[in-house]
Amino acid sequence: MVSPAHFIALSVILFVIGAVGVLVRRNAIVVFMCVELMLNAANLAFVTFARMHGGLDGQVIAFFVMVVAAAEVVVGLAILTSIFRARRSASVDDANLMKY
């Protein structure tokens, strides 16, 4: 039997993979994918808890997160494209002009 704890454990694992990916990877596209991973980990947790408590709130929020994630990807990829055009690089460490 697959218990809610399993889903939560999977969610935590996905989130940690995503977080570590954001922190250690330089390729902007990979960083993006890791962000998606974290969002989906959160979605999984929402849905799991919604099932556990028998409410719909968590499921509705999961939809909102998906919408936000889709919008974010659109804007993010557009920025990424223009940066790549200008600098011939998709590394997040190369885009460091906005600093002290």
Binding site: A19, V22, L23, V24, R26, V31, V92, D93, A95, N96, L97, M98, K99, Y100
Partner: peptide, 16 residues
């Protein structure tokens, strides 16, 4: 203000 390095990943770390 030296904290503002311009590296996205360091911001991400501080957020984390």
């Amino acid at each position: 203000r030296r904290v503002q390095t311009g590296f996205v990943r360091s911001y991400a770390l501080s957020m984390f």
